[in-house]
Amino acid sequence: MNLMMNLLKAFLVGGAICAIGEFLVLKTKLTPARILVGYIVAGVFLSAVGLYGPIADFAGAGASIPLTGFGHALTTGVRRAIQEVGFIGVFTGGLTQTAAGISAAVFFGTLIALVCKPRPKA
């Protein structure tokens, strides 16, 4: 029951965050790249002012999987590192916290690129 609730919350919150992105695409003609940059910066900001934490606690993957969650991870990483090591944490915290996602994307991207060929759409 608890599991179903968690999945449902992830679906609803994650879906809503994506739908807002689609709304911006259709309304403003912003390119996906600009929206992604906007999303990650928005994630950093919302997390910094303490708004994203509660959403993340509530929705789990529904908040951590969208790119805003990436921004949230950067912020929480920076905050924790500053608490632990002081000023140098400003520069180490963000990428430490997000290293897994970035390294995975770099490595899998390279691997797939070496193995697979792109194809034209039908």
């Binding site: 695409v25 996906p32 792109p118 194809r119 034209p120 759409k121």
Partner: peptide, 18 residues
């Protein structure tokens, strides 16, 4: 050529955009 034009003017073929 669809593929040469896409990569030059737009996105890689396997990039998922609308």
């Amino acid at each position: 050529h669809f593929c040469t034009a896409e990569r030059q003017y737009r996105f890689p073929l396997e990039y998922g955009c609308q």
